[in-house]
Design a protein around this nucleic acid. Structure first.
Lengths: 189, 189
DNA sequence: AGTATAAGTGAACACTTGTTCACCTGTCAA
DNA sequence: TTGACAGGTGAACAAGTGTTCACTTATACT
């Protein structure tokens, strides 16, 4: 019953992308007075799953809109009953550190297959014109665009290394311009 | 200047996980009357990037809090200037269809390496006790937990197939219990 | 039984909300 | 200069906000 309240409020948040006001919660859970909601919220605040701003408006806390992160696969999945999850996370925040200058690209081709990035995957890239050694970059070399490892050889020259033995490393002839670095890979089934 | 307003409102939304009220926008962009905000919002509504609910409160629209999805890698990255992105998406919504019964697990081991799921990846799983042929499942077989392909052989028997030649298919001796199916894979660099 | 504690009701309060109206700039064209 | 017009100001309004108080109902325990 009580857990029910939480999930109804969460559902509202998911649907409307904002927290409900007291009257809405009232209708949501079936109360007939806003004061009942007030007392309910008091408990949720004490539990730490929601907070109030200076004006009393609700703000969702960490556990809200987040996915419980259980252990590792081989340890098995804990049953719902115990559900002592190790952590919880928002995928959005996890994947996109800073939403600024972040874009998503679809992957074509198999040149990064050995890095386990395959055709149809989505890569989350951050647009920047520099990169660290070893990062996967989106670069423009000799007129074409590619996604490759950004490497440096013994003599200090930079080159692009595909993660596929079928293809050879690319030593830029004229110029090489880094457009973005790959921050994450997402694959959906 | 005008574009500035949008990004400031967006920043507020990102930070507080809710849309600002008119007075907050007023302080945000430097207006001295809420009516100025009212007129500004009117334009944003007309542009379709925000809406109002029945009570006048702002609700963020599709372009808000979302990541622009550009084309495919080989086509290169369009410049910021043009930015005629093909689409835009919220990773949260994209990855987690229904947040209910969805969990995240960290991958250990290399038994799914040929499916390009490698150690350290995060798999987004949905807890359910059935699966379709060919899906990747988290299952309990003969007392242990594994992540494998869920397959059916010619005679109609189900078995678990690792995506790694080093390991043999698993034909469940006593019982096989499916705990969850893998919906997505996320890898962060 | 009785009684203490939790949970819900309903009305009232001060305050904030989005909205409207009339008014005041600037800027640009004729 | 004149007029038009988009963009901003400031005050006023009804409606909705979170909160408080006093009161009632349900639940559990000795």
């Amino acid at each position: 019953m009580y857990q029910d309240y939480k999930s109804k409020i969460l559902a509202f948040y998911e649907k409307h992308r904002r927290m409900p006001v007291y009257k809405e919660i009232m209708d949501l859970v079936g109360f007939k007075s806003r004061n009942a909601v007030y007392k309910l919220i008091d408990k949720l605040v004490e539990e730490g799953i929601v907070s109030k701003d200076k004006q009393g408006k609700l703000i969702p806390n960490s556990l809200f809109g987040q996915v419980p992160m259980l252990g590792v696969v081989e340890a098995g999945i804990p049953t719902m009953a115990e559900e002592t999850f190790t952590d919880t996370m928002s995928l959005d925040e996890f994947i996109l550190g800073d939403k600024d200058k972040t874009y998503i690209l679809e992957v074509k081709g198999d040149s990064m297959i050995e890095a386990h990035i395959t055709e149809g995957d989505l890569v989350v890239v951050k647009r920047q014109d520099y990169a660290k050694e070893g990062e996967i970059v989106i670069a423009e070399v000799d007129g074409g665009w590619t996604m490759k490892y950004f490497k440096k050889d013994k003599s200090g020259r930079f080159y692009l290394l595909p993660a596929n033995k079928k293809y050879a490393p690319i030593y830029p002839e004229s110029d090489m311009r880094i457009a973005a670095v790959v921050k994450a890979v997402v694959r959906k089934f």
